[in-house]
Simulated assay, not measured.
Amino acid sequence: MRQKLKGIYTKFKFRWEYFLVILLIVEVIIFGNLNPRFLKPQVLFGSVNDFISICIIAIFTCFVFITGGIDLQAGSIVGLTSIVIGVMWKSAGVNIIAACLIALIVGGLCGALSGFFIGFTGVQPMVVTLGGSFLYSGLAIAVSNISKTAAYLGISGFPQYFTSFTKKRFFGVIPSQFLIFIALSAIAYIILHSTKYGRKVFLCGINQNAAGFTGINSKLIIMSTYIFSGMAAAIAGIIMTSYLGSSKSDFGSDLTMPIITAVVLGGTSTLGGKGGVIGSALAAVVIGIMRFGLSMNGMPNQYLDIPVGIMLVLVVAGSCISKNQKISTVLRHYVSIKN
């Protein structure tokens, strides 16, 4: 029996996703004990509506991080696409479905613009996407001025069929946004982990020059990851506009740090070449549940970014420490002495 257990142990390979699942269970248990209402299925699944944008964007932003980049503009693209939907529908008289498709194209173009400068000119991703966040926020305000409605009020009055699809609950419990997130996660997983394109993304992150020597157009691959991220932000903007029944230019302004934290916490390396969709998806849910649980137990909304920031620092610090050979040697030596 002992040999059998030892054999199982040696074959078992720890994955970071297992830790995230455990962390998610611990969160549910702790917050459920603090507030029993938290454990009600309608409340727990309903919390998805508060952080679904983080989840959707994170699963595609991890593409960017795997190539060694970073995306600080996704939140601004959410606001831009949201206000584009409102203005196109209310001021230009475009059908709401067509307006959503236009918003999706706008999100892709925003990602393509930043991706072009990063992939083809070699400008640092942080500089480009930080500039992009200011640019797209400014464009969102400029677009909102086209509408006759004041910017701070937003645009409302959308057709019922547009606002109702995000309020549906399957079996009376599971919101439609959660199923959209699952479907997009499956699509992202197939693209990244089961296609030649996905292998090229990883190769570009491991060594861009070497990828180029193998015939991979690394510049175009890098650009494409920002297009995916921009389109994911546009989808989040569409869902947010539908659920809230309002279109505003400042939607997504507070999403940047949670998105980055979700990707990094999901096991994606900030140096590129390592990461995954499942880890990013689980980490986004972990962060969302943590924010919702803290809010339900009395923490003011303006302080919810504090634990997210602490988590980001700890994860990055832990990752750097684990890769430091001197520290690893000292820890191994200490463990061997203990044994």
Results as ranks from 00 to 15, higher is better:
residue 4 K to N: 12
residue 5 L to I: 11
residue 6 K to V: 14
residue 6 K to W: 09
residue 7 G to A: 14
residue 8 I to C: 02
residue 11 K to V: 14
residue 12 F to M: 12
residue 18 Y to K: 04
residue 26 V to S: 13
residue 29 I to Y: 11
residue 29 I to D: 10
residue 34 L to Q: 10
residue 35 N to L: 04
residue 36 P to N: 05
residue 41 P to S: 11
residue 47 S to I: 05
residue 47 S to R: 11
residue 52 I to V: 09
residue 62 C to D: 02
residue 67 T to N: 01
residue 67 T to Y: 04
residue 70 I to L: 09
residue 75 G to F: 00
residue 78 V to S: 00
residue 80 L to P: 00
residue 85 I to G: 01
residue 85 I to W: 02
residue 89 W to E: 04
residue 89 W to N: 10
residue 90 K to Y: 03
residue 101 L to Y: 07
residue 101 L to N: 05
residue 102 I to Q: 03
residue 107 G to S: 02
residue 107 G to L: 00
residue 109 L to R: 10
residue 114 S to P: 05
residue 117 F to S: 08
residue 118 I to Q: 13
residue 125 P to R: 09
residue 128 V to G: 01
residue 129 T to D: 06
residue 133 S to H: 00
residue 137 S to Q: 08
residue 145 N to E: 09
residue 150 A to R: 06
residue 151 A to K: 11
residue 152 Y to M: 14
residue 153 L to G: 03
residue 153 L to W: 05
residue 154 G to P: 03
residue 154 G to T: 01
residue 157 G to I: 05
residue 159 P to S: 03
residue 159 P to T: 01
residue 162 F to M: 00
residue 164 S to W: 06
residue 167 K to C: 08
residue 168 K to Y: 15
residue 172 G to F: 07
residue 172 G to A: 13
residue 172 G to H: 11
residue 175 P to I: 13
residue 178 F to N: 10
residue 179 L to P: 03
residue 179 L to T: 07
residue 182 I to Y: 09
residue 184 L to Y: 13
residue 189 Y to S: 07
residue 189 Y to N: 07
residue 190 I to T: 10
residue 191 I to E: 08
residue 191 I to V: 15
residue 197 Y to M: 12
residue 200 K to F: 02
residue 201 V to L: 07
residue 202 F to D: 10
residue 203 L to M: 14
residue 205 G to F: 07
residue 207 N to E: 06
residue 208 Q to F: 09
residue 210 A to V: 04
residue 213 F to Y: 10
residue 213 F to P: 00
residue 213 F to H: 06
residue 214 T to N: 01
residue 216 I to Q: 13
residue 216 I to G: 10
residue 216 I to H: 11
residue 218 S to Y: 03
residue 219 K to R: 14
residue 220 L to R: 12
residue 220 L to H: 06
residue 221 I to N: 10
residue 222 I to L: 10
residue 230 G to W: 03
residue 236 A to L: 05
residue 239 I to G: 00
residue 241 T to L: 00
residue 241 T to G: 01
residue 244 L to Y: 03
residue 249 S to Y: 06
residue 253 S to G: 08
residue 258 P to V: 03
residue 258 P to C: 04
residue 262 A to N: 10
residue 262 A to H: 07
residue 262 A to E: 06
residue 263 V to C: 02
residue 264 V to W: 04
residue 270 T to I: 13
residue 271 L to E: 13
residue 272 G to S: 02
residue 274 K to M: 10
residue 276 G to F: 13
residue 280 S to K: 12
residue 283 A to V: 08
residue 285 V to H: 07
residue 294 L to S: 02
residue 297 N to W: 10
residue 301 N to M: 09
residue 302 Q to H: 08
residue 303 Y to R: 04
residue 304 L to C: 09
residue 314 L to G: 05
residue 314 L to C: 11
residue 317 A to Q: 15
residue 317 A to S: 15
residue 319 S to C: 01
residue 324 N to K: 08
residue 324 N to C: 03
residue 326 K to N: 03
residue 332 R to T: 06
residue 333 H to F: 07
residue 338 K to C: 13
